[in-house]
Amino acid sequence: MSVKISLAGVHKHFGPKQVLRGIDLEVQTGESMVIIGGSGTGKSVMLKCILGLVHPDAGSILVDGQPVIGLKGKALAAHQSRFGMLFQGGALFDSLPVWRNISFALSGPARERRAAAIDNLARVGLGADVADLRPNELSGGMQKRVALARAIAARPEIIFFDEPTTGLDPIMADVINDLIRGLVTELGITALTITHDMSSVRKIADEVAMIHEGRIIWHGPRDSLDSAENPYVDQFIHGRAEGPIKMPLRKL
């Protein structure tokens, strides 16, 4: 396997808040990498830096060996067209019906785009009957599946999943996990997922990395997660309040 995405020493701050403090990470082609870590540790910012939506202050980001930082105009658009992204809240366009959301990035006559949308709906386990509904007429789980169909519709090389199971019941979360794993295996896509959900990690990941205070503090195969012997990883995967990760709580 070759390196698809490579980050080295990536720093980013917003005002006085230093969010990324030197991220080093490599994702192999066709691999499913899952990033775990607490809220506010910089996971989403890291994804947006790779996409070129946020500009890092320092460091380098390479996709297939090509630098991302500094891309502008058509070069940036060409870079972004290689990615699909499932946003945390779905980010479906309220004003458009489901089929137009899914086929948004596709070109060609409306009939062909609609057929492609229905085909992608089937991939995520939804029928053609939802194609003409608006996003606000769908349940949370269905919205997530439609967003997933939209993310894969243009057959991107790389897909980012931003907390794909947040806000879903355990059964629907498992359905989404199965879909993601299936899509990654079936379509041979390189996937980068960020999540807090350990059942997602165990189902989706080939490799796992943990981010804490803007740095990758552990990285390894999914099966070595339980034997990582890293107190931060151990505290996180077992969801313990006690440990090296301190929550900024005020005593009553």
């Binding site: 996409l51 972004q80 067209s81 990615f83 809240g89 980010a91 366009f93 948004f104 990035a105």
Partner: peptide, 14 residues
């Protein structure tokens, strides 16, 4: 705030 503008960018739309 619902990331729809970011979604537009990832869907090849300025």
């Amino acid at each position: 705030v619902t990331e729809q503008i970011d979604a537009l960018t990832t869907l090849r739309t300025d």
